[in-house]
Computed example of a mutant assay.
Amino acid sequence: MADERLAIEDSPVVTGDVGLLAEAARAVHGGRDLASKLSWVAEAARSLTSASFAAYVAAPTEGGGVQLVVGCPRYVVEEFASAAAALLFAGVAAGNTGVRVGDIREETRFRGLRPYAGFDEVVSYLAVPVLASDGSPYGALMLGHPDPDRFDERAQAAVTALTAHLGAALENLRTVNRLAELEATQREVVHQLQDAVRPVIPDVENAELGVYYLPAEPSAPTGGDLYDWVVLPDGALHLVVVDVVGKGVAATKDAMSVTHALRLLALDGCPMNRLVSRTDVLVSAQSPDLAATALIARYRPDDGTVELVGAGHPPALVV
């Protein structure tokens, strides 16, 4: 039985091209920035096809316009490349995967491009779209030569392989950027939520106050552990540490209901020995399943005394 495996010499991409395409995998998917990736691919396409110029044109959804030209001054072919790319992108929607023309002057479909600067510089023409995984175009790689019939099937296959690498790299880059934006948004939400639940440090006579708040879960901005402090009308400092059963933002909501109840009762003049029982009544009426511990302190700056009341919480540490 004959060996049906495709030998490398039978491939449209010849052996000499394979090394460059392997290098493309390293260069395009490596740590280069977008401009470097585009430049490398354009130069590689010129090397593989012996084109006189290569241009990368972004799709309208990516901002449009000629992003890069190598092999000749940009102004020479920019108008032609932009107009030709519009035709190519329209064809992508219809399922076309590229255009290869031996003599563009003889193709009636390109007759409308004659008025554009750069048309006379192009005879042989090869254009391949750079596609996302869903088939939408990121852009197009376009190559030209002033002589006819310079691009064969092998050249088109090689450029198609390059654009496949570039399309995957652009998709990965877009995903990384999207994740970075999402992470930045999440960090901002975390900071805003932390600022919302953390009370401002009060100014208390004869006392220096400080706090370090670190959530137990890095993925959760807050949790069931919360603190509160406020200066009461008589000048005393009301200070509370609450630990609610649960995790994450839901536990924070429950902890805030406890700290708010304690604060309101303290501001209303509720005695320390009744704070816990009255808070339990208020909170249980709204959240009967809520379970929490608390440590309440009352500091009087005029005489330096501290009164503590515990509600199942570990005792305070005095250093």
Rank of each mutant, 00 (worst) to 15 (best):
E4I: 13
D10S: 12
D10M: 02
V13G: 01
G16F: 03
L21P: 10
A24V: 05
A25Q: 06
A27H: 12
K37Q: 13
K37P: 00
R46M: 15
S52I: 00
S52Y: 10
F53R: 08
A58D: 07
G65I: 05
E78Q: 14
F80D: 05
A83K: 13
A85G: 08
F89L: 08
N96T: 10
T108Y: 02
R114E: 14
Y116D: 01
V123G: 00
Y125C: 04
L126Y: 08
V128Y: 09
V128S: 07
D134R: 04
G135Q: 08
M142F: 03
D147L: 15
P148M: 07
D149F: 14
Q156E: 15
A157K: 09
V159W: 07
L166M: 04
A169P: 01
L173D: 13
V176Y: 00
R178G: 01
A180I: 01
E181N: 02
E183G: 01
Q186W: 05
L193V: 15
P199N: 02
V204G: 03
V204D: 04
V204C: 02
A207W: 04
G210C: 06
V211L: 12
Y212D: 12
Y212S: 13
Y213T: 06
P218D: 05
G223C: 05
G223H: 09
Y227M: 07
W229L: 13
V231M: 02
L232H: 08
P233F: 08
A236T: 14
H238R: 00
H238I: 00
V240E: 12
A250W: 00
T252M: 11
A255F: 06
S257A: 15
T259C: 08
D268E: 15
P271W: 06
R274I: 00
L275Y: 07
S277L: 04
V281Y: 06
V283H: 10
V283D: 09
L290R: 13
A291V: 14
T293N: 08
A294I: 02
L295S: 03
A297C: 14
Y299M: 02
G304N: 05
E307N: 05
P315D: 13
A316Y: 07
L317R: 10
V318S: 07
